[in-house]
């Protein structure tokens, strides 16, 4: 019997879930997804990793613990590099080791994804390694990988058509072709790692709050990679973090777009790459001087009141800008 594979609803899940899910399904593996982040997961994660890691990594520990008694294996790829001459964040690279030694977990399925030197073939190697581990034959692995890559491509197209991850992978799984969604109303660009932007528990439901304020939200993943890379090329030096490339490139792209009335950089406290890319974005936004920009740094100590005050002030700024030149008060 094939093992049940657990997937933590954290970190890379927010980027690659459709790829993983489609592949595992194709080779006949049953998957189990940890529940959405809630207080219990947060508390378990904080208790398990008291070290100097960012909140999303602590949350990931909580998700891994939530899988503990339910699965035979946990899929936790070690992402070293997602693109040539670029790296992932060091905490992601070290994550499998970190949790293996500090939490007691079922065996980890941690294929190494390293495209630093070669762009494409490691994916096949990863698929074969995973297939071997769960007892799937070569033909099934190859067939399933091709299907998963196709599904992932559909997913990316849906994101770029204006969908958010959850709805995009549901649609991609159903084989739906993208039906472009024009933003309804003014757009606020919400820039950050997918796991901070989409996990409502980590970001105090920022996305929902912006939508409730009557704004359309656009994120970094919704900008095609090639567009983001072209925009990020405006930097004097190539950024060697893939996620940073996407964030900075997408932000620069949005700053040039009609209809974008504001930008929020949402960052994790203790994140090295964020401290750098967030600042690059803030400086660029300020240089233009037209689009209000807000930097939000989040961790488990981020008081809701403080975040809401900043958000409200930001929305006031956006409203004042839209009325162009109307003084707040006589």
């Amino acid at each position: 019997m094939k093992p049940v594979v657990g997937i933590p609803r954290a970190l890379l899940y927010w980027q690659y879930f459709p790829l993983w899910q489609s592949f595992l399904e194709g080779i006949g593996v049953e998957t189990y997804l940890s529940p959405p982040t809630g207080r219990q997961i947060l508390q378990d994660g904080l208790a398990a990793l008291g070290t100097d890691v960012c909140l999303p990594v602590k949350v990931a520990a909580g998700h891994l613990l939530a899988l503990r008694d339910r699965v035979d294996l946990i899929l936790l790829p070690r992402l070293v590099s997602a693109a040539r001459r670029e790296y992932a964040c060091p905490k992601l690279m070290g994550l499998p080791d970190l949790v293996r030694h500090s939490l007691s977990l079922p065996p980890l399925l941690s294929p190494v994804i390293d495209r630093y030197r070669h762009d494409n073939w490691p994916l096949i190697r990863v698929a074969l390694a995973v297939g071997r581990r769960v007892g799937a034959g070569l033909p099934a692995v190859l067939r399933s990988l091709a299907r998963a890559v196709e599904c992932y491509r559909r997913y990316l197209n849906l994101l770029q058509a204006g969908y958010f991850p959850q709805e995009a992978w549901e649609a991609a799984g159903a084989g739906q072709a993208p039906d472009p969604r024009a933003p309804a109303g003014d757009v606020v660009a919400l820039i950050g790692h997918p796991y901070t932007v989409y996990d409502r528990e980590i970001n105090l439901n920022l996305l929902g709050r912006l939508e409730r304020a009557g704004l359309s939200v656009r994120t970094a993943e919704q900008v095609p990679e090639a567009t983001a890379r072209r925009a990020a090329a405006a930097l004097p030096k190539h950024l060697f973090w893939t996620a940073g490339q996407q964030a900075v490139g997408a932000a620069f792209h949005y700053l040039e777009q009609e209809g974008v009335v504001g930008m929020i950089s949402v960052m994790s406290f203790g994140c090295g790459p964020d401290s750098m890319t967030g600042d690059l974005i803030a400086r660029r936004a300020r240089r233009g001087g037209i689009i209000p920009h807000l930097s939000l740094t989040l961790d488990e100590h981020a008081a809701e009141a403080g975040v809401l005050t900043r958000l409200e002030a930001f929305l006031d700024m956006v409203a004042a800008q839209r009325e162009r030149g109307v003084v707040v008060c006589g």
Binding site: F269, R286, G289, P292, H293, S295, T297, D299, H301, A302, A303, G306, T309, R310, A313, D316, M317, A320, Q321, R324, G325, V326, V327, V328
Partner: peptide, 13 residues
Amino acid sequence: PGGTVADFAMNTV
């Protein structure tokens, strides 16, 4: 210059 809030920062923790 128009009298609206253009940017702000607040202390964190």
